[in-house]
Design a protein around this nucleic acid. Structure first.
Lengths: 147, 147
DNA sequence: ACCGTGCGTCCAGAATCCGAACTGACTAGC
DNA sequence: GCTAGTCAGTTCGGATTCTGGACGCACGGT
């Protein structure tokens, strides 16, 4: 009986289950940029209202966003990042960088970030232990749990 | 005439147009892990064959994967990363890390990577200019193109 | 000739996404 | 008071996309 080798259990897959749906990360992007309200997100992302509403629900359920009431009488909510949501910043940044490098038109990157050190922010992924920039050829797998 | 404020032009959105579809990044993950063949990817990702075939096509069109013939007579192809594809490694790593931190079960991360420096790889996103770990509170927007 | 493997395609149904219109609770202007 | 406008969604029918299962085809081994 040939082992069916069921789908790899993996944090990448699990993360994509949560933020991999269309518009999810764009909603998170908007919150990072300070646009926390529904209609503003609709305008800035171009998502259908319906879809955005569904996405925000799942992001709240997943603990990435938090619904915060900013008006009582017409009940109005805005969406804020939780700690887990803020931890998505590296994901956003690496996506941004890839797009800047591989899809930027002649006009260059449409959104440029500035780091507090005074320079333009160019995000790099480094090894926490040694600080070196990480390259696929310099990493290997380490004894997984067996399966 | 209220400005409709059309969707933000943004490298994140553009990147997601290319790799944001379901299964796309899992296919790329498999190639990073060395599984370059169709059936192997099917087994390891759990994607439907049809969907994977479509995804591989778009990834090839997008210049992320390259089809490489490894057998002539039964024409057989495997999928290899292009330079642009290898540049997705940071995206994969940040997704992995987020999942490890926020979705790992009691068993801990199912996939552990080792860096050539000898330590377990824990990827961090740092500023190319100053080397500091990047925090959302320490970045700001820099003169966008106007819109 | 027959079975198994590798790499897909084809198909029909299910799930999801889409845009536009609508609701409901207000606020601002006249 | 009446009309407009804003905000945060929901509802709706139609368009897309995903899904799993069956099928096709070219081998290779026995």
């Amino acid at each position: 009986m040939a082992a069916p080798a069921e789908p790899r259990v993996c944090s990448i897959a699990r993360t994509l289950d949560v933020v991999g749906e269309k518009w999810a990360l764009l909603a998170v992007r908007e919150v990072f940029l300070g646009n926390r309200r529904f209609d503003e997100m609709i305008r800035r992302t171009g998502a259908p209202r319906d879809t955005l509403a569904a996405r925000l629900r799942t992001l709240v359920e997943a603990g990435i966003l938090r619904r915060h009431r900013y008006s009582d009488h017409p009940q109005r909510f805005e969406y804020r990042l939780t700690t887990a949501g803020r931890d998505l910043y590296p994901v956003i940044l690496t996506l941004l960088r890839w797009g800047d490098e591989h899809l930027a038109g002649v006009e260059g990157p449409p959104l440029v970030l500035q780091h507090s050190c005074g320079h333009r922010l160019i995000p790099e992924v480094t090894c926490q232990a040694c600080g070196e920039v990480v390259d696929p050829t310099e990493t290997s797998r380490r004894s997984p749990v067996s399966s």
